[in-house]
Simulated scan of single mutants.
Amino acid sequence: MKKTRTLVLLSVVLAIIVITLGAYTRLTHAGLGCPDWPGCYGHLDVPKTAQEIERAEQAFPERPVETQKAWNEMIHRYFAGTLGLFIATIFIIGLRMRNQGMPLYLPLALLATVTFQAALGMWTVTLKLMPVIVMAHLLGGFITLCLLYLLYLRLTPYTIESGNKNLRQYSIYGVIGIVILASQIALGGWTSSNYAALACTELPICQSGWQQQLTFENSFDLVPPKRDTYEFGFLNHAERVTIHAMHRIGAIVTSVYLIWLALFILSRTSSRFFQRNALAVLAILAIQVSLGVSNIVFNLPLPVAVAHNVVAALLMLSLITLTYSLRRRVKE
């Protein structure tokens, strides 16, 4: 079981790397760096020689080869494919060890999720960055990471010393926090996939007059009008302002709730374990808010924008740790 737990932990780390690479690929506008799937211009890697590039551009005349963007996309695919193999291995182990206390449903859910995630990766390319597919692909990465981390927690034996035996009843507040944070991550994915990250350039919500620009008629339509490509977006400025403003408001709601949750837990327990977990949520939230503000102040610098995605994942993992631990049996 220890070796399996190590494999799951490695998969958690790999999933974080995949999320990082996915954000980098999206933010460098490399989502269509390879116009086909799963290869790149018919290759298992990127066309390199002049002859290969010429043949590639003849096969895909609408998409000239941009080597750097193509490598960004393919490196992301390599890591995602490796993660898929890790998860398939975990499922096989779960199947073989189901009578020895190894969870089976979590590995099964992981296998189903990563399989659908592969389909979303294909549709991201074939449907030319349709926003709902791009957002779903981002959420699929987060779901994969969360399921892997939950499996790791399930495989980790630990007993929690608590100064209050009734903490279990407060786990519902953690679940609510997870739902709120997941909704905010989805809003972030919708903002990014519709190229609305720079629609608002002032704090705290948007520039002057943003309330008059709000329009919900087309801003959140999951099925957009058919287009040859959705790269660089198709919504007008007011619709992008609406999406961005909702993401900002969502950030405020999420921050207020998570601050309340952490302070609530701190006030209800003398357990150092739960105090550390609650403080971790506060610390990661502070970093995430700082990154969000920096994105606006410094005009979406690439390292900060990528870190904003990664820290969102870490914030979710810290919240899962807190909520899952509240559900565990405490030492009498």
Rank of each mutant, 00 (worst) to 15 (best):
K2H: 11
L7I: 12
L7W: 12
V8W: 06
L9F: 15
V12E: 01
L14W: 06
L14V: 10
A15N: 00
I17D: 00
V18Y: 04
T28S: 07
C34P: 06
D36W: 03
D36L: 06
P38S: 12
G39D: 06
L44S: 06
D45N: 07
T49Q: 06
T49M: 09
E52L: 08
R55W: 14
E57R: 02
E57P: 09
Q58L: 10
F60N: 02
P61V: 07
R63L: 10
E66M: 10
E73Q: 09
E73P: 06
I75F: 04
R77G: 05
G81E: 03
T82F: 14
T89A: 15
M97E: 15
N99I: 10
Q100A: 13
Q100R: 15
M102T: 07
M102I: 09
L110Q: 00
T115V: 14
Q117C: 10
A119S: 07
A119R: 08
G121H: 08
T126A: 01
K128I: 03
V134G: 03
V134I: 11
A136R: 01
H137V: 04
L139C: 12
I143Y: 01
T144M: 12
L150G: 13
L153K: 07
L155I: 04
L155S: 03
L155N: 02
T156E: 00
P157D: 04
Y158S: 14
Y158P: 08
Y158L: 15
G163F: 09
N164P: 14
N166Q: 11
Q169I: 12
Q169N: 13
Y173C: 01
Y173H: 15
I176S: 07
I176M: 14
I178M: 11
V179E: 04
A182G: 13
S183D: 04
Q184E: 09
T191H: 02
T191P: 06
S192L: 04
Y195M: 05
L198C: 03
L198A: 11
C200Y: 00
T201I: 14
P204S: 12
I205F: 14
S208R: 14
W210D: 05
F216E: 01
S219D: 05
D221T: 10
V223C: 04
V223D: 06
P224K: 04
K226R: 10
T229P: 02
Y230C: 00
F234N: 05
N236H: 12
N236K: 07
H237N: 10
A238G: 01
A238Q: 13
A238E: 13
A238H: 09
A238D: 13
V241F: 01
M246F: 13
I252E: 00
S255T: 14
S255P: 01
A262V: 11
L263W: 14
L266R: 08
R268D: 07
S271E: 03
R272G: 12
Q275Y: 11
L282W: 01
L282I: 15
I287A: 15
L291C: 07
S294R: 04
I296E: 02
V297L: 10
P303Y: 06
P303R: 09
P303Q: 08
V304Y: 08
A307F: 03
A307R: 02
A307S: 10
A313T: 08
S318G: 15
T321I: 13
L322I: 12
T323C: 09
T323L: 05
L326N: 06
R327L: 15
R327D: 12
R329P: 05
K331C: 12
E332F: 15
